[in-house]
Design a protein around this nucleic acid. Structure first.
Lengths: 204, 204
DNA sequence: GGAAAAAGTTTCCTATAGGAGACGCAACGT
DNA sequence: ACGTTGCGTCTCCTATAGGAAACTTTTTCC
């Protein structure tokens, strides 16, 4: 059995291995394989040469931006960022974990928020589990608004998500929703017991 | 009971388009001016030639991906900007939900990824549930790498998260972890049955 | 205005990106 | 064994990317 490491502090004594050119080719090959395409098919779809693609995947060339752009569209790597080896993320080389129920708690009248991974500073997403207290809701008026995007996943219970400009959305375990958190929003439990949802919030 | 709206159509998953010719140069020039840099300064910072930058800005060349990459770092250009014709503002006023098990599936040999948003257009986070197939792992070598940050939450089963520069981390239901996804990482199930984890990925 | 400096463009040259097709090499069936 | 087919690599050639430096334009002083 694997030993459970105590929380690692961050960068070890040795610097992070800089992702060299090797990675780009691998990523593209992986993506192509993922789609089950042959060199010929992928190259044709991207309107580039078969040999060019081969060389790119084997890191034998330094492709032009245009070529990469076409490949990204073809392979549906809609995330050009994937290829940026910029390493300018605030969490570079770091990791942080939280055991069930061991997050830091912040309580309000309606929610009990448990922050996950609160020790990792500079991370851009904020994950937390909210226990939504069951209560009677006649008219929802407890709007929350904060510029950014938010993802919510129902862990247990039945909830209704209120979102400005949309009809209320009833959700059960396993359901999820992604919305502009700049719109007013809020969540109530409609089950007899409290509901638990996982939220991941991203500020602008 | 609240009516459950059928899936909102929102924006379709339209293909990302890169600025064709004309626009790319302009964007770079604008970005450079914005930062108050001269050709010389910007070129030096990006470790490219002054003349090269001039040509790029005037669309007299088809720069390599590597060159553009360096410029984007130097000029702090967001990649999406480069790939989206006009800077349409993210998810403003949008909402998108997915019912349990109704996400779009993408299968590989080790994982079965279920995307939790039908329409990823302009979303910055990518949420998905992965079913990690149980298998024997003697030596882990299936590293995945993509510049950005990632949050993982274990829904069921026992898994081991491998992260470059860290010891493997054994996790059970309810445990969560946040890490730099630019580090090689990967997850295996160590329970007899498949494991399910929720991932939220954020690209740089 | 005129000189000097700074910013940007163009020229010139070398290294190489990218494509066409040849080649290698499995995995088939006959 | 032998072709054949399908997939990936390698060779070769041309067009051009990228950098150094010459050249031109703009700005900033006096």
């Amino acid at each position: 059995m694997e030993p459970i490491p105590s929380e690692e502090t961050g960068l070890g004594p040795e610097a992070m291995e800089a992702p060299d050119g090797e990675v780009l080719g691998k990523m593209i090959r992986d993506a192509r394989k993922e789609k089950g395409l042959t060199l010929e098919e992928a190259a044709k779809a991207a309107a580039i040469g078969r040999s060019t693609l081969s060389k790119i995947e084997n890191n034998q060339t330094r492709p032009s931006f245009e070529i990469i752009r076409r490949l990204m569209q073809t392979l549906e790597l809609e995330t050009p960022q994937l290829f940026l080896q910029s390493g300018q993320s605030g969490v570079t080389g770091r990791r942080d974990f939280t055991r069930t129920g061991e997050g830091e708690h912040k309580e309000t009248t309606t929610y009990d928020h448990e922050l996950l991974c609160s020790d990792l500073t500079s991370k851009r997403m904020v994950p937390y589990i909210s226990t939504i207290k069951a209560r009677d809701v006649t008219e929802f008026d407890n709007w929350v608004r904060h510029q950014g995007e938010e993802f919510m996943f129902v862990l247990s219970g039945e909830v209704i998500l209120y979102t400005e400009h949309y009809r209320p959305l009833r959700m059960g375990p396993g359901d999820s929703v992604y919305y502009d958190s700049g719109m007013g929003h809020g969540c109530v439990s409609v089950s007899a017991e409290d509901a638990k949802v996982l939220w991941v919030s991203l500020e602008v």
